[in-house]
Structure formats: structure tokens, C-alpha cells
């Protein structure tokens, strides 16, 4: 079980909404947002994923002073990819599924506590990538009153080899 604090900030929401191409002013304009049903700046539906920014152990962010598996002088900084955390799959892993249950809207100003527990793991033989190992994790985001805001369930998959591409991409 891993716990982290996730401060939901308006500037982070603005950047996240831009990155998914969402220009809805409820994510960027406090005055406008006040007059909507939401009553203030909201987080977009998949914003909980950005809590990775606040996970000190998140495996898919370069850490100061530590080796990183992306390219520099060489095509990779280290020969073996580190295991990644979270539902997004680790180094060498891919994200297979993501599910959110919204108990109440997530808003700018919320300070959430995210608690992640590992779920099931299972294996499957894939046509396009050899043996697949799936692993699930469930994260509950609670507010300062301890009330549940979002439940997130992620499934990551490790593939035996890169996923084969349809002919058009080969």
C-alpha cells in the first residue's frame, strides 16, 4: 500500500487540459467557472492520473542524480529498464486499461490523499506480442474530510516482445 498527497492546483489543471486539447473554460477561467453548475475550476475526468507528479517513487520520471533509461549519448542510459509504478505500466510495460469512478467532482483547491493497493495479476498469450502479464492497481483519492472523491483502477501489461503493428505501419 502506498500513500501520497495530491494537491489539485488550478495551474496544473490548465496545463493538463491544454495537453489533451480541451479548451473548456471551466478548466482555466475561475470567473467563468464560478457561474457554471460546477461552481468553480474543475479537474478534467482523467486528471487523477497526473497525481504521478506527486509520487516520489514514480518510475517513469527521471530522478535527480539517478540513471535514466531514455537516450542521451547512447540509445539508452541503462541496459535494463527500471520497474515502474502505478497503473500506467512500468518501463517496458504498457497501459492496458483505466477505469474511474467519480464520487464527487475533483476541484482546484482539493488536497487529496491517494492510497494505492495492488490488485490481481494474470497472464494471457497474445497474438501480436507473445506472453502478456497483466497487473492491476486500485487507487482511492480522498479529500481532507476523508470522503472518497475518485476511485481509479489501472491495468498495466508487460509484453514478451514489442506489439506487432498492422501492415500499414510496418
Amino acid at each position: 500500500m502506498a500513500t501520497k498527497t495530491f494537491p489539485v492546483e488550478a495551474s496544473h489543471i490548465l496545463m493538463f487540459a491544454r495537453s489533451v486539447g480541451d479548451d473548456n473554460r471551466v478548466y482555466s477561467d475561475a470567473e467563468y467557472a464560478k457561474g457554471t453548475e460546477a461552481g468553480g475550476i474543475l479537474a478534467p475526468p482523467t486528471f487523477a492520473q497526473a497525481s504521478a507528479q506527486f509520487d516520489p517513487d514514480y518510475g517513469l520520471r527521471p530522478k535527480i542524480g539517478q540513471p535514466w533509461f531514455g537516450s542521451g549519448k547512447n540509445a539508452t542510459g541503462i541496459t535494463r529498464a527500471p520497474g515502474g509504478g502505478g497503473g500506467g505500466g512500468g518501463g517496458g510495460g504498457l497501459h492496458a486499461e483505466q477505469h474511474f469512478e467519480y464520487h464527487r467532482p475533483m476541484r482546484a483547491g482539493d488536497v487529496l490523499t491517494a492510497t494505492t493497493t495492488p490488485g490481481k495479476t494474470w497472464e494471457k498469450e497474445g497474438k501480436r506480442s507473445g506472453k502478456l502479464v497483466f497487473s492491476e492497481s486500485v487507487t482511492e483519492y480522498r479529500d481532507q474530510k476523508g470522503e472518497l472523491v475518485i476511485t481509479a483502477r489501472g491495468v498495466g501489461v508487460r509484453t514478451e516482445r514489442p506489439v506487432e503493428q498492422p501492415a500499414e505501419k510496418a
Binding site: 517513469l60 520520471r61 518501463g91
Partner: peptide, 9 residues
Amino acid sequence: AGASGDYNP
């Protein structure tokens, strides 16, 4: 990648 924090290369 920058907004979400997922910097997987």
C-alpha cells in the same frame, strides 16, 4: 508527458 508526469521515453 509534461502535464501528466508520465515521461516514459
